[in-house]
Each structure stands twice: as structure tokens, then as C-alpha cells.
Design a protein around this nucleic acid. Sequence first.
DNA 1: CCGCGATGTATCGGTCCGATACATCGCACG
DNA 2: CGTGCGATGTATCGGACCGATACATCGCGG
Lengths: 212, 212
Amino acid sequence: MLEFAILGLLQEAPMHGYELRKELTAKLGAIRAAISYGSLYPTLRRLQAAGWITEAAETPATAEEVPALTSRRGRVVYTITAEGKERFAQLIAQAGPETYDDTGFGVHFAFFARTDQATRLRILEGRRRKIEERREGLRDVLGRAAERLDAYTLELQRHGLDACEREVRWLEELIANERSGRAPTVPQPGTAGGRRENDSPPPPGESRTKRP
Amino acid sequence: MLEFAILGLLQEAPMHGYELRKELTAKLGAIRAAISYGSLYPTLRRLQAAGWITEAAETPATAEEVPALTSRRGRVVYTITAEGKERFAQLIAQAGPETYDDTGFGVHFAFFARTDQATRLRILEGRRRKIEERREGLRDVLGRAAERLDAYTLELQRHGLDACEREVRWLEELIANERSGRAPTVPQPGTAGGRRENDSPPPPGESRTKRP
DNA sequence: CCGCGATGTATCGGTCCGATACATCGCACG
DNA sequence: CGTGCGATGTATCGGACCGATACATCGCGG
């Protein structure tokens, strides 16, 4: 998961670790708290060893020398390689079961702008299926095993069930949107939120095959 | 977290691993998928080493012998000890930061029936605070950094923000309920669930008269 | 009689987290 | 003028938890 997110982010710009974490936190803030350095740095090292990214110590630039004295520990800037981009595309294409759990889906969704429509659709439907299963499980418990559980546990299940139903509806909207027309956002029916100039999406297809 | 949940469950009845997992899945189904055996068994071993639980191989009962031949691997039944109950009470009392993250809160909430009202209130308020912070973070991103993010990422944030607002409202209700009156459930107008002598939660624990 | 799904115990490698350590920089406050 | 403090920045270590896997028994239907 982290590998996927890092590869995705580095396609937008080279970054150093701290920056990467901030961007990651901003982009994934809705689904997970904050990436830990204890996973970030080892993963960066792993990616580098695999050849997906390269790391380069930031040079003091035009400043002649003065490397002595406090031996300033320079920031390490990571850049994605061609193989890394390939790897990212491959990770998008193959959707394993982990693609549909909470974190996996969230991360994939966050990079939908770099995902082709067919894959988007596939992931959305897989996620819906998974949530529907969870929903059925909760309904079962609330129906059949209700008297075995205490009031607090039941309340928790009810809240979870509600969240499931809500997410299924959200996914339905996204799927419908994705199928007919390629609008990326769900139009908010109730709350008339301003800015409707957003209906024309920036991603007409994924790859802005950027020319270097 | 797993330690907490196991200790809590084993206070209701002794169980073997498979059963434990099923009960755990039923009780926590709203917040996490399913406990893996890869964490369950090592944790049981750890708890046993610490003296919180004891394990006993299920004897073939009255069946004289026949231990030979296929050497049936008996089920291992785990029972909580007095020290284990003490440990559980201690884990309830001390609320660290992990008590308020998604999983931690869910597990604590699932055992609210064994938690005193003051602690329940403290946990609910801590959780609310945490969710409010997450909500503010999302609002910030949606407000200030909106143009830096693509439409899909924004939609994800919106959905997350909605979930936060909903959870805060849910917590508010629970807190209000907890404060005035000791009703364990949000007043569900429709379902008149019998037994209202339940207003005093079972702190003495020990309810299920399990008879082998 | 044979497979297959449920029951049941257990390990291994790997991902990720939380705590911790250490170092630099700019700025507000006394 | 210094002094501390929060943001920036890199990095490691132990531990929690997961997913895959292995193996064994049991009842049931084909």
C-alpha cells in the first residue's frame, strides 16, 4: 500500500521524505491518520533497492563549500524511475483482494486521476461488493444474534451498518457517474454548495503522458 | 488491542481459539474485518505466559483411552485468571492515545457494558475530540488546498468529512445519553426492546450461566 | 467412497506503527 | 543578546498484526 502511494506521489514531483509524508497525509487524510516514519523510510529504501526510485543527496547548490564543521545532513530527494512508473501502472492494473479493504481502496481511489476508466469501474464495483458483504454480516448479527449481545455492542453494529449503507449509496453514485459520462465528482443534491464549474473534470483520460 | 478484546471476551466464558475468533468477529464486525490466527495464537501464548489466562487441553472426557493411532489433537480451552480480570480492569482505566483511534475506540466501546460510566464518558469525549480534529484537518484541505488536488481526491475528502460529521453527531447523542440518565442505548423510538431493568449495567459481570 | 466445507491448531515472512534519538533553522520572548 | 521552542529533517528498533500456508478431524451429500 505504502509502495503504491509513494510511487503515485513521486510521479507528480520528486520529493524528500518529510515532504512525502506531508503530501501523503494531505492526500490520504480521509482514510488514515498519518504515515509513520518507521514505515516510510524502510519502504523508500526498499523501493530504491528494487530500482523503482533513485535517491540523491541535495547538494548545497552554488554555495562553494563549507562542508566542514557541522557536516550538514542534507535532505535526500527521491525521484521515480521509468521502471517505477511501469511498476505503478502494473500495481494499478492488478487488483488483488487487498484492493477492496478500507485502506487499499482509499489509496487506490486517491489515485483515480491516474487510473483508466475501466479499472476505476472495476475497483468501485469490487469495493461495493465487499461493503455489501460486510453489511449483510452486520444485518445477520443484528437480526439473529441480537439477544446475545449487550446494548452497547448492538449500538456499535447499528452505527457500522449505517456507515455501510451510506458507503454503498456513495459508491452507486460514483459508479453511475463513471459509467455514463466521465464526471469525477458526485453532484451534491441537498447542500447547494457553490462552485459548479467543477463539473468538467480535469482527467479526460489518465495519462497526460508528460513529455520530459 | 487484541489482548484487551480477548481478556474481555474470556470473562463471559472460557473458549478455545476458533470460538474466540468467531465471537471476536461477531462483536467487532462493525469495525474490523476478522482477527487473523497469525495474531490470535501468538497473543494467546503471550497472555498465558503473563499469567492472565490459563490453557487446558480438552480431555476426551469419559472415553477411556484410544489415545493411540491418530492422536487426536484436542481443542485448547482458555480461561481467564483473577490476574487477568485485574489486568482487564487496568486496561479499561488507563486510556492512552490509542484508545481513541478507530480500532482502539471500537474495541473499548464493544466492552462498554463492563466499563463504569465515568470511564465511558471520558472515552466518548476523547473520541469526539479526536474526530473533531480530523474533521478540521479535512476542512482545511478542502478549503485551502482544494485547487492542488484532483477531483477524485477531493471527493474522497468530502466523503471522509461527511463521515466525521456524522460520527461526531452520533457521539454527541451517546454522550448526552450517558450524562443524563444512564441509558445504554440511543433511544430508538421504534424498537421497544424488553428488559428495561437493564438500566443498571452488569458491573458484577458474570451473567451467562454457562453449564457444560 | 470420495470430495468438500466447517472446525480446529499453528507458524512464517512481511508490513506498518509508536517511541525514540539526533540535528538544523528561524523566530519570538525576556 | 541569548535562549528556548516549534517546524523541518533523517533514521532505527521492537512489537503488533496480517495473509498465506500447512496439517488434521468430522459430518454430509453426491
